[in-house]
Design a protein around this nucleic acid. Structure first.
Lengths: 112, 112
DNA sequence: AATCTACACTATGCAAACCTAGGTGTCAAG
DNA sequence: CTTGACACCTAGGTTTGCATAGTGTAGATT
């Protein structure tokens, strides 16, 4: 993944990953990498601030836990967050569909 | 279209629209709006600087013409630009596919 | 004649937010 | 006791889309 293609779509990804159960940052990063087949291998400096932002916006709640001496901050979706996930998802569908429409009719090189 | 979802994907759109023939800025804006079914109604302040950037990068060439007293700057793809279009397109496919994979398994609310 | 709308381009500067690059600390394995 | 996986944090830079404002022509409307 190159450039800042992610811009504006990160929240969708984070909310989506967290939507099926409470998770902490490190696990979110791994799961995002796995579920995207290595396309989204996000640096911590990208994910942690985004989680803070989402919590500040009321989309996530968090609580500290300690597992085997390691402290974890575990996030879960709020109702507002669940609503936002749906909105983001609809917006993504419209967006990606629109790109598809623009791309339609652009021929591939060397492909019959 | 909301936020900065476009970030990182604008070049793809511009290159795609220009790929089927030389066009000038105003027409590019209209065509983008039409082909995207109003999803991409981009302000001039977004498109013109982007065109300049693409030309500076060697992806577009331009020439001035005068049609009915109005000067137009007409852009066409360079070879480099055509290559970049292919690259951007592949990247877009990988990106959107990856988002799809992450979203897979996230249930819609109230939909059987 | 005057105004309005569509056409067509330019320049400046802001702000969101992703990323780089650092930092802290725990635990298990070698 | 060193390495690597785990787990978190933040300050600052950079990119880039967008807002805003300005210039000017042509044709239609009033």
């Amino acid at each position: 993944m190159s450039g800042q293609a992610l811009k504006g779509h990160l929240d969708l990804l984070l909310l989506a990953v967290i939507s099926d159960g409470a998770k902490h940052g490190y696990v979110i990063i791994n799961e995002l990498r796995d579920r995207s087949d290595d396309e989204f291998d996000l640096p911590e400096g990208t994910v942690y601030p985004a989680l803070h932002r989402l919590q500040k916006g009321g989309f996530l709640s968090s609580e500290w836990t300690v597992v085997q001496g390691r402290r974890r901050r575990t996030y879960r979706l709020t109702d507002k967050g669940r609503g936002a996930l749906g909105d983001h998802r609809k917006a993504w569908l419209a967006f990606s569909n629109a790109i598809g429409n623009v791309l339609k009719g652009v021929p591939w090189p060397h492909t019959p």
